[in-house]
């Protein structure tokens, strides 16, 4: 079970990112819980300066853009 957080202050790209990850997870049949974190404290905790950012199992793996499908697949496997 992957624990995935999408960080960002509620912009359209952040929502799209979360949707992309959810879609990819169900496509691959991987169990994943995707949550959106909009609080500024969360951004600070992970040292994120450009959003959307993605945290997988507590590890910051991406920031600053919507991730490519290939990247998402890597995180899920």
């Amino acid at each position: 079970m992957r624990e995935i957080k999408v960080l960002g202050s509620g912009c359209a790209k952040c929502n799209n990112t979360a949707e992309r990850i959810e879609a990819k997870a169900s496509e691959l049949g991987v169990e994943a819980r995707v949550t959106k974190e909009t609080s500024p404290e969360a951004l600070m905790q992970y040292g994120v300066m450009s959003t959307p950012a993605v945290v997988v199992d507590g590890q910051l793996v991406h920031s600053g853009s919507m991730p490519e499908p290939g990247q998402i697949q890597e995180w899920l496997q």
Binding site: S9, M44, S50
Partner: peptide, 15 residues
């Protein structure tokens, strides 16, 4: 710049 990135930027700079 887009105003939706002002918050993370502000936090990053301040810290």
């Amino acid at each position: 710049f887009c105003s939706c990135s002002s918050v993370p930027l502000f936090i990053g700079f301040a810290s």
